[in-house]
Design a protein around this nucleic acid. Structure first.
Lengths: 146, 146
DNA sequence: CGTTTTACTTCACCATACTAAACTATCCAG
DNA sequence: CTGGATAGTTTAGTATGGTGAAGTAAAACG
């Protein structure tokens, strides 16, 4: 097998396994983590908006947010402007998640700092293109669905 | 946020979402895909050995292999040397999975071919180190588990 | 050979996360 | 105000993937 492809697959496996371990450790599901990602990108949003975004019913989101808040990953506040609504924000707190991701970030930063500026540019370029391809392929697969 | 970290998170999300889409498309779970990864790395192995490797009971592996064979990802053969045993191998066949991963591989190969040899070495080095860190961190988290 | 062990499958049961729908609280329109 | 719409939670039911143990077939042992 092409050594590049092999590396890519290993990275992919490593990423997925890391995510699984984090999920198991914090007591959140893969879907919960996806919702967290949506929330991180989008910023504060209501429970209903999140439900629409992740394609689940409001009821499911209640359970999801329960788990995420229990894990200390998300804050759930009543919207002062409309007290029926629940505003969700990614908790910037300490806690288990900060410990986990902080440690990863430290390692990654240290590793990256050993490259020259030019090398870092190459790496960033590669990552950007890879993300693009992955998103593209994900769309393609999802479109083929049934 | 550090642009490098941001890119890393995006890649991670893209990888996970790609995996989820593949799983949904082929009708296999995340666990199934992990087992497939084990099988790919290890080569042919018996159902019992796979069960031990992924930490599930033999009964669960039966169902898992059912799904994987149904998706055309794995072959299930009786071991001619010991006919109680079931030999599992990654199916190198055509089918939906080949179409999916083939397309991804084509895109990635084309993208990588645009870099010089030196650049490719930098990228490979980066990927290798990243995988190492991820595996390390995964171990760390799993160890912390109660 | 007959008994015991081994390898996988099958079965009954359990946990979990989902949906649909009833319920509660709040907002808005007349 | 009052009636209806909206936001989220709660609840009853469903699907799925897991465990543990019984069942089936093949190998190994004495």
């Amino acid at each position: 097998m092409d050594p590049g492809a092999e590396l890519g697959r290993e990275l992919s496996t490593a990423v997925v396994m890391f995510h699984e371990a984090v999920g198991a450790h914090l007591g959140v599901t893969a879907g919960d983590q996806r919702a967290l990602g949506v929330l991180a990108r989008h910023g504060a949003m209501s429970a209903g908006a999140l439900a629409k975004e992740v394609g689940l019913t409001p009821g499911a989101v209640t359970g999801m947010v329960d788990r995420l808040t229990r894990a200390g990953l998300v804050r759930r506040d009543v919207d002062p402007a409309d007290r029926r609504r629940v505003l969700l924000t990614v908790a910037d707190g300490a806690g288990a998640s900060a410990e986990i991701f902080g440690s990863l970030a430290t390692e990654m930063t240290a590793m990256i700092s050993r490259y020259t500026t030019e090398e870092r540019e190459v790496i960033a370029d590669y990552l950007t293109r890879t993300v693009e391809i992955l998103r593209d392929q994900t769309r393609r697969i999802s479109a083929r669905q049934r």
